[in-house]
Design a protein around this nucleic acid. Structure first.
Lengths: 144, 144
DNA sequence: TTCTAAACTGGAATGGTTCTGAAATGAAAA
DNA sequence: TTTTCATTTCAGAACCATTCCAGTTTAGAA
């Protein structure tokens, strides 16, 4: 797995027989250009509006759903907080600041053997979610 | 950290100066007795109703929020799916079946050093979320 | 250029969770 | 035991990110 670039995503859409629309291009642009921010639907919507004349929030949601269902991006689901999206498919930890909501990637030093899990439990792993919550350096410096 | 038992939870409530009510006792019972199922609010509500004469869903939510805010149980948040609660505070993986929603604990063979993260990024870890998604043995045997 | 399945749109619906304000109650004090 | 009152509980309304819907537009093949 890798960090998805614009061309990767467009290529994959084409390969799946999906249409390349101005909306989809704008959404992919917004996703890739803001990758390190792990953007949510609203941010992607606002960024995409700058690139394509017409984009609706419904389309942003539909496209994000399509992309993550196809495994081209990773959805990070939250409860009372907007879901966030990640074009970095390499196995890594997301450090999520509980105060400001910032999400930063942290590469894992070693991976847990998924084979072992299947052997012991019969459970077949298709995707993982590993998140560490706490406070980022910036927030720790800031007064409450 | 450990697997919380009924007495642990009640003791902690008392220590925090919170009142021991029939509703809270029933909710704690439901939580502990169904721990391995990683119950959601609805299941806890239904189980609690069997123990206490009167319990409302609002109270279940309020109590679960109280308990997880105090770090006595762990909330697992989802987007379009009920949040689930875990009285097992030891660091472990949750294997989540994408078909039936079953959640099974899997003890981690080794932990990632949280000190290293702070040293490298300044981020201070307070709690973690590690979930592996896929299909459980039972679902793999069942026809689609 | 024509044609049609796929994609887009705005608004309504959804559903788990939180909020609200009034009524009930645990438990400390009298 | 009774009083007292901050805490807790309750039912229903509100919330809000996300999904659904039905009508309109459009990408791309023929």
């Amino acid at each position: 797995m890798k960090i998805m670039k614009k061309e990767d995503l467009i290529g994959q859409l084409r390969e799946k027989g999906l249409k390349i629309t101005p909306q989809r291009l704008a959404i992919i642009d917004a996703l890739v250009e803001n990758r390190t921010r792990h953007p949510g639907a609203t941010l992607i919507y606002n960024e995409a509006k700058k690139k394509a004349k017409r984009v609706s929030l419904s389309t942003v949601y539909a496209t994000l759903k399509e992309l993550s269902a196809s495994g081209l991006i990773k959805a990070m689901e939250f409860d009372r907080m907007e879901n966030r999206y990640d074009a970095n498919l390499s196995e890594h930890l997301n450090l999520i600041c509980k105060r400001c909501g910032a999400i930063v990637d942290f590469n894992l030093p070693a991976t847990i053997e998924q084979k072992d899990i299947t052997r012991k439990t019969g459970f077949v792993v298709t995707d993982t979610r590993m998140e560490y919550y706490g406070y980022c350096g910036d927030c720790l410096k800031r007064p409450e």
